[in-house]
Simulated assay, not measured.
Amino acid sequence: MEPPERPARGAFAPWDEPAAQPLVVFDGVTKRFGAETAVSDLTLAVYEREFFALLGPSGCGKSTLMRMLAGFETPSAGRVLLAGQDLAGLPPHVRPVNMMFQSYALFPHMSVEKNIAFGLEMDGRPRDEVGARVAEALRMVKLEGLAGRRPHQLSGGQRQRVALARALVKRPKLLLLDEPLGALDRKLREETQFELMALQERLGLTFIIVTHDQDEAMTMATRIAVMDKGRLAQVGTPPVIYEAPATRHVAGFIGEINLVEGTVSGCDGRRVTVATAVGDLTVADAVDSVAVGQMVAVAWRPEKTRIVRGGEAISNGRAVISGTVHDIGYLGGRTTYHVDVSGLRLKAAVANAARSIERPLGTGEAVKLAVAPDALLLLVR
């Protein structure tokens, strides 16, 4: 029987429903390795049928958190619960969880087909079911013609896909993915992201993925937990994480951003003016309460920045910043300008919507950057 279809991503938000019960709960979890604290008093809930991403730089604790859920590490303090059950003392092989590691961990003496089928055969599944599910997994990772090969006859990316297929074929209640697409080339990586999303929705599984790749998390996840030094910096949907980062760390880690330090010089409700090295910047809708004289940061995304030549006029209502083009990056779909302003380097991204454009800006040219007040973010942490 096929599971019911999950609602469209925009309508899927069990974390906003007071009556919804999470599938996974990390309750005040701490993990220490000797004197080092890898995870510190962390509380987090993941709901059934989410595609949840743990995102952060190396050493932030995201893989340790996943390993505690899988049963390969034991919390130093706190609890890990799955479907309401405390997992303390429960060994990995009896948890309804499957994990794909960063390493391939394939059986070298077995064919691709046998590697993928191994877990199903150990569970005593009927031969016809094993064959059908292995064939489906091979199609998903685009290895149909390689079923009879051994791991040493495959490229690194192909071996990674075999490991992914082996993790998916058992259709666990909860699938843990530790940097699963790292060995794939860019095009195949992007294709596999959408295939994983489609499979997760079709089968009604819950996926938790560990990644340091912001684009991967933003593409695949229903929600993202951004981690920083063993703690949660922010948890939210991709649009919230991108458009309303809670801290300087989140703002700087997710995508490109301009960030300027300054001092609050005026407050009018949620409208806050900040004196900075690039001039006064007025934030139209500040989330955090601040006081005059407080040190804060103002941030905005490069794509929300208009750039024009220094002699051109800009409509009123925008912050206008004068500078000089330092460097230009042409990326096909967009062009990014690096602009020197009062000892800082700011960025403006312009979509290349037409094939033929007017005379482009050049390095060393005087320019103006314009940013609307509602595009500015006020960050106090």
Rank of each mutant, 00 (worst) to 15 (best):
R202F: 08
T263E: 15
Q214P: 08
G362Q: 13
G145Q: 13
R223D: 00
L331N: 12
Q214G: 00
P180K: 13
N258V: 05
F51T: 09
L81F: 12
L369M: 15
I224Q: 06
E136S: 07
F33A: 06
S111I: 01
L54C: 11
F72E: 02
V97E: 09
G230M: 07
L143A: 13
A38E: 12
G89T: 00
A277F: 01
G230K: 13
G252W: 07
E144C: 08
R67A: 03
M295S: 14
I224G: 00
L82M: 13
N258L: 04
R133L: 11
D285A: 15
A70W: 12
P238H: 13
A77Q: 04
N258M: 03
V278Q: 03
S103D: 14
E358N: 06
I307C: 06
P151L: 05
A135W: 04
D268H: 07
A284N: 06
G255V: 09
V112M: 04
P302K: 08
G89L: 00
E2P: 15
N316M: 10
P151F: 03
P373Q: 11
N98F: 10
A88R: 09
W300H: 01
M1C: 14
P14H: 04
I314Q: 09
G230W: 09
I116Y: 05
G252F: 01
F107R: 09
G279D: 01
G156F: 03
G310P: 01
L331K: 12
E50M: 08
R6N: 10
K114Y: 01
P22N: 11
V169W: 15
P238M: 11
A354N: 11
D27R: 15
R202S: 06
V141A: 08
G252S: 13
D213A: 10
V272D: 11
A167R: 14
A165K: 11
Q21S: 12
V272F: 12
V320N: 10
A70T: 07
S342L: 06
F118C: 02
V39I: 06
P238G: 12
L154Y: 10
R309N: 06
A299C: 07
A354M: 14
H249P: 01
A20D: 12
Q153I: 09
P108C: 04
G269L: 08
A291W: 02
